[in-house]
């Protein structure tokens, strides 16, 4: 489904670090996400998502990730979670939903784990 997760800056499995290189890679896509703060832009985006992606200069992989709502791929391709979340909000998705996706647990199980005190390492 998505591109490889690039190697992280630290030896912290499952922990993306949004560094300068990542930010550069994701700049256009993050700009697109930030633009979704206005209703007008959300309407334009929804009317033709591919055209909107091209207008912002996304790479083909980034565009595909956005169209597919492949959240993990968006992160791997340089998305900042705070920016990606703008798209999720537009879709009516919560941070718990995203947590369910990133962990592979699904939203319900993720939510239950949070309510039980959160997840632990190891």
């Amino acid at each position: 489904m998505s591109s490889e997760t690039p190697p992280s800056r630290f030896d912290l499995p499952g922990t993306p670090v949004f560094d300068g290189q990542t930010s550069r890679r994701g700049l256009r896509m993050n700009k697109l996400f930030m633009s979704l703060r206005t209703a007008q832009n959300r309407e334009r985006f929804l009317a033709d998502e591919a055209a909107y992606c091209q207008e912002f200069g996304l790479t083909p992989e980034q565009q595909q990730a956005v169209l597919d709502r492949d959240w993990q791929a968006m992160i791997d391709l340089g998305g900042s979670i705070f920016y990606v979340y703008k798209l999720a909000m537009m879709d009516g998705r919560s941070m718990q939903y995203l947590g369910g996706v990133f962990t592979g647990m699904g939203e319900d199980e993720f939510l239950a784990a949070m309510r039980a005190g959160g997840r632990r390492d190891g």
């Binding site: 560094d19 300068g20 290189q21 930010s23 550069r24 700049l27």
Partner: peptide, 20 residues
Amino acid sequence: SFHLVESLVDEEFDLTVFQE
């Protein structure tokens, strides 16, 4: 640039990083 930013921020220079 990234190398310079990381070195200088580690040395406590409070840079603003410009991508545009």
